[in-house]
Structures are given as C-alpha cells and as structure tokens.
Simulated scan of single mutants.
Amino acid sequence: MLAIYVLFWAFSVFLVLPWGVRTTREAGGDYIAGQAESAPHEFRLGRLALRVTIVATALFALFVANYEFGWVTPKMLDLFDREAVYNRG
C-alpha cells in the first residue's frame, strides 16, 4: 500500500504544481537577466509538499474505499466484453 501511495503522491505533484503560481510580472517584481517571463516568482517547496500530500491522501483514500467496497470494478470498465470473447472458444 505504501508503494501505491507513493505513486499517488508523485502523480499529485503534477496536478498541484500549477495551483497558485504567479509570474514575476503578476507579483510586481523585477526580472533577473536570463529569467523566462513564465517562470514562477517564488517557489515554496513546503507549501507545495503540503498541498500534494493533502491531494494524494484524498485520492488514495478514494482508491482504498473503492477497493474495499467495489464501487468500480474491472468488469464494469470492460468495454469490449473480453470474457465473452474468451468463452466462445
């Protein structure tokens, strides 16, 4: 379960990374020579890690609840009815 949680955490980084990002122009700061206009003004690793942990924990909780209660099963997602194909012979 820990390995699956780590995968959820790593995926959540990409979901959370763009939240609340402000460029130097939006923040009213001065550009540094060679800085891209789209670069974030400040990068706060602690805040990012906290947000990612919250999102990953919520998604992982839904994953575990689905595993326990069977809300969505692989058979529900089988759009091509593979079981019928294998049973034909």
Rank of each mutant, 00 (worst) to 15 (best):
Met1Ala: 11
Met1Arg: 06
Ile4Phe: 07
Ile4Asp: 02
Tyr5Trp: 08
Val6Ile: 09
Leu7Lys: 04
Phe8Lys: 02
Trp9Glu: 02
Trp9Tyr: 15
Trp9Cys: 03
Ala10Tyr: 06
Phe11Thr: 03
Ser12Lys: 00
Val13Pro: 02
Val13Asp: 03
Val16Leu: 03
Val16Ile: 09
Leu17Pro: 03
Pro18Thr: 08
Pro18Arg: 05
Trp19Asp: 07
Val21Gly: 03
Arg22Asp: 14
Arg22Gly: 05
Thr23Lys: 10
Thr23Ala: 08
Thr23Asp: 06
Arg25Asn: 09
Arg25Asp: 15
Glu26His: 10
Gly28Ile: 12
Gly29Tyr: 09
Asp30Tyr: 01
Tyr31Glu: 09
Tyr31Met: 15
Ala33Cys: 04
Gln35Asn: 11
Ala36Glu: 08
Glu37Pro: 02
Ser38Leu: 04
Ser38Ala: 13
Pro40Arg: 02
Pro40Phe: 08
Pro40Gly: 05
His41Arg: 14
His41Leu: 06
Glu42Tyr: 11
Arg44Ala: 11
Arg44Phe: 07
Arg44Cys: 10
Leu45Met: 13
Arg47Glu: 09
Leu48Glu: 04
Ala49Trp: 08
Ala49His: 01
Ala49Asp: 08
Val52Gly: 01
Thr53Asp: 08
Val55Thr: 09
Thr57Ser: 15
Thr57Pro: 01
Ala58Ile: 15
Leu59Trp: 06
Phe60His: 03
Phe60Lys: 00
Ala61Thr: 13
Ala61Trp: 05
Ala61Arg: 02
Leu62Gly: 12
Leu62Ile: 06
Val64Leu: 06
Ala65Thr: 14
Ala65Asp: 09
Ala65Cys: 06
Asn66Ser: 07
Tyr67Cys: 04
Tyr67Phe: 08
Phe69Ser: 06
Gly70Ile: 06
Trp71Phe: 15
Trp71His: 07
Trp71Thr: 04
Val72Tyr: 04
Val72Ala: 02
Pro74Lys: 00
Pro74Glu: 03
Lys75Ser: 14
Met76Glu: 10
Met76Ser: 10
Asp78Gly: 12
Asp78Ser: 10
Asp78Ala: 13
Leu79Glu: 01
Phe80Tyr: 15
Asp81Lys: 12
Asp81Gln: 10
Ala84Met: 05
Ala84Ile: 07
Ala84Glu: 11
Ala84Asn: 11
Asn87Trp: 04
Arg88Ser: 11
Gly89Gln: 05
